[in-house]
């Protein structure tokens, strides 16, 4: 599970460089997210635009990443493709995260 990140306008943008977040990579994803977000800016945007499939294990791994970041930090999700968006809405996790259609939209909205 390859993630890359950059810091822009005091936001950490973490991009998923893989097309699936599923049971096969969920633990790897969680570990990689910790590495990319620990000690970084308060607000993290997870860029999911390359991800075409997520299952409940992947969803759980994103929830775990948000919990690990803690109450005082924000994890926003951007660039959800239709299959990924569907899983968030189906499980009502769309009410837990801030979802943005595009990464640019998320950056504009969230920059301090």
């Amino acid at each position: 599970m390859n993630l890359s990140s950059r810091t822009e306008d005091q936001l950490r943008v973490v991009s998923v460089n893989g097309d699936r977040i599923d049971a096969a990579v969920a633990i790897e994803f969680k570990d990689a997210m910790r590495a990319e977000t620990d000690g970084g800016p308060e607000t993290v945007i997870l860029d999911l635009s390359a991800v075409g499939f997520i299952d409940s294990s992947g969803l759980g791994a994103i929830v775990a990443s948000m919990k690990h970041m803690g109450q005082d930090r924000t994890l926003a999700l951007a660039g959800l493709t239709p299959p990924v968006d569907k899983v968030f809405r189906l499980t009502r996790m769309d009410t837990v995260f801030s979802l943005f259609a595009t990464l640019d939209g998320a950056i504009n909205e969230l920059q301090p």
Partner: peptide, 25 residues
């Protein structure tokens, strides 16, 4: 059953979505 998302962050479920998804689809 649908998981309850109306909880504190620390209690947010990380699993239990699978059968809900199967039975929905």
């Amino acid at each position: 059953l649908a998981v309850n998302t109306d909880v504190e962050l620390k209690d947010m479920p990380e699993g239990g979505f699978g059968w809900f998804i199967i039975k929905d689809l």
